[in-house]
């Protein structure tokens, strides 16, 4: 292997499964003459890679845990670069009758009926964190939900596999908009609940702090973040997939928290 400058980014699965990273990777590599290694992992695992210093940048979507990561000295700065919304998918017949409800009410209904299956990521990812947050807002302790019955299924895998499983089992599931649109053609599921402030999904990039892990390539990491938030790439993120899926997967929001 000839020595080559390499930059490692651990990304949440939704930015990988939608193909966004595959699309942006060659542009970045060409611009900065660097080999970009993109690893997909749930937010929890991506943060863990960052803590151990095994990657130089992370792109994740779980605000509270990102802030914790930075507060503990592992990350430099949280830079939001795109957002979209989560939505609850389910079988077209909507057996639990949750259409039109708020996300919180929808989960309450699922809990009460205890019949219609729900597939959870169950992998400590950003989507999983969001799901826990909605359960909490709906008035349930998450541990109680996990023990609620066999209708609550923990997949323990990425967004794509979880969608495939939910479709196979004709179950409800929480997904980000981007992955849903990218997988739509393969799923026998439809959007059931897609309105509610709690469903906002913000993606940010964080350079791993060289103070905690001196060997990480912080300069190139900052180049990547500058790249992601540059006007040209922001425009490409905004238009990514529009032609193929008929609607926007990600809304760019360079450096600012969306309202």
């Amino acid at each position: 292997m000839p020595p080559q400058p390499r930059l490692r980014v651990a990304t949440t699965t939704s930015l990988y499964d939608t193909g966004l990273w595959g699309y942006l990777e060659p542009m970045f590599e060409q611009k900065y003459n660097v080999e970009l290694d993109v690893m997909y992992a749930g937010t929890g695992k991506a943060l863990e890679y960052g803590i151990r210093g095994d990657v130089d940048v992370i792109t994740v979507h779980s605000k509270a845990r990102e802030e914790e990561f930075i507060a503990e000295g592992y990350g430099v700065e949280r830079v939001p670069f795109a957002y979209n919304y989560f939505l609850i998918l389910g079988p077209p017949a909507d057996p639990a009758g949750i259409k039109g409800l708020s996300p919180e009410e929808a989960l309450q209904r699922l809990m009460d009926s205890a019949k219609a299956s729900f597939v959870s990521r169950g992998d400590d990812s950003g989507t999983h964190a969001k799901e826990k947050k909605i359960w909490q807002a709906a008035g349930y302790a998450y541990e109680a939900v996990r023990k609620a019955g066999s209708w609550y299924i923990e997949a323990g895998s990425g967004m794509g596999p979880t969608l495939m499983m939910a479709s196979e089992k004709q179950a409800y599931t929480l997904t980000d908009m981007g992955t849903y649109l990218a997988y739509k053609g393969k799923l026998e599921l439809v959007p059931i609940v897609d309105k509610g402030d709690i469903l906002l999904n913000v993606y940010s990039a964080i350079a791993v702090n060289p103070a905690a892990n001196p060997k990480t390539k912080v300069d190139m990491a900052h180049n990547l973040i500058a790249f992601l938030t540059s006007p040209q790439i922001q425009e490409l993120i905004g238009s990514y997939g529009v032609e193929e899926y008929g609607r926007q997967l990600f809304t760019p929001c360079a450096g600012a928290e969306p309202k």
């Binding site: 292997m1 490692r8 803590i51 210093g53 095994d54 892990n213």
Partner: peptide
């Protein structure tokens, strides 16, 4: 081979080696 591990200095994690 993780950077935080005993052989981390070799920087080999996530390589074919």
């Amino acid at each position: 081979f993780s950077r935080a591990g005993p052989m981390g200095g070799l920087n080999l994690l996530f390589t074919p080696t």
